[in-house]
Computed example of a mutant assay.
Amino acid sequence: MDWDDLRLFLAVARAESLSGAGKALKLDPATLGRRIARLEQGLAARLFVKSPQGYALTEAGQRLLVHAERAEAAMAGAAEELRGVPGSLTGQIRIGAPDGCANYLLPQVLAAICDGNPGLEVQIVALPRVFNLSKREADLAIAVSRPEAGRLTVQKLTDYHLHLAASRGYLEAHGAIDSPADLRGRRMIGYIPDMIFDKELDYLAEIGVAHVPLASNSVSVQLNWLRHGAGVGVVHDFALPAAPELVRLIPDQISLTRAFWLIRHADDGRVERLNRFADLLAQGLRREVVRLEALA
């Protein structure tokens, strides 16, 4: 077995199909299928079971996956050692994050990291869901709750705060909000209830709001509704400097605290490049949350 065999195996395991893996590898699916069959024959073990849903790992495939991912991390680490200027980060890194963090924190934090490391390329995947690092949807992910399963390393990045907010125009048109009782009858803005992918995002339920007439799975859409005077909603304090039309409401009575967590595949701890990037990201994100919340 050589690294190229493991590389093809990993692609099929992550894509769960020959066509998806072939597209990622720029390899004909039929050729890929023959390579996988030859690998199975060489190992005298069946690695995949084909079903209408695609290619699923067998027990033997699951065992091989652990070793293949370790080999991948070792190859990445070796390549990094031989590439670029010593001490400088190079190559491509993809980070997945919820869209509030991706829109209002990561752009400036990552721009600063790239300024100090000109050979670095960074991709932000902003999606309202949990990322699958085993399938290499991203090299690192930021989440709003600590995962309880999987071969992952988890690091707390920072706490952040959220408050109710509305535009000055909305308050002038519909009256001030001086207590939680004043929320009755107000048009609320928040997440689509059945698309809340993490319980930590169910802000309105926590403060006793059951009905959400204006809802989106995007933090940015919610913020823009608020900016245009459409109603009342919960906003990240770090996003408020980007929306000067908004004011916090009853912060001494309703205040929420959440945390960001940095999640990495367990085997990536051997990749020095990702270790250094994770340190810079954590430091930059903490500083930026403190700076922006002070302006809110």
Score class of each variant (00 low, 15 high):
D2G: 14
D2I: 15
D4G: 06
D4R: 14
R7Q: 14
R7I: 08
L8S: 14
L8P: 08
A11V: 09
R14N: 12
A24T: 13
L25F: 01
D28A: 05
P29Q: 04
T31K: 00
T31P: 03
G33A: 10
R34H: 02
I36Y: 00
I36Q: 00
L39R: 01
A45N: 02
V49D: 12
V49G: 06
S51P: 04
P52R: 02
Q53P: 02
E59A: 11
Q62I: 08
R63D: 12
H67C: 11
A71I: 10
A73K: 04
A74D: 15
A76Y: 11
A78C: 09
A78K: 14
A79K: 14
R83N: 10
G84M: 09
G84E: 01
L89A: 08
I93T: 12
I95N: 09
I95K: 10
A97C: 03
P98G: 10
P98R: 04
N103Y: 12
N103R: 12
A111Y: 14
D115Q: 15
N117G: 01
L127H: 04
R129N: 02
N132A: 07
L133Y: 04
V144P: 04
A149E: 13
R151G: 14
V154D: 04
Q155G: 02
L162V: 08
G169H: 00
G169A: 06
L171V: 03
L171A: 04
A173F: 00
A176C: 06
P180Y: 05
R186W: 00
I192Q: 15
M195E: 15
I196C: 04
I196F: 05
D198F: 02
E200A: 11
E200S: 08
L204E: 10
L204K: 06
I207A: 01
A210T: 09
H211W: 05
V212D: 06
P213A: 12
A215I: 10
N217P: 15
W225G: 03
L226A: 06
H228I: 04
A230P: 00
A242L: 05
L246W: 06
R248T: 05
L249G: 03
D252V: 07
A259T: 15
A259M: 09
F260W: 14
R264P: 08
H265C: 13
H265N: 15
A266L: 13
D267R: 12
D279E: 15
L281V: 14
V290E: 11
V290C: 05
L292F: 09
E293K: 01
A294T: 12
A294I: 12
A294R: 08
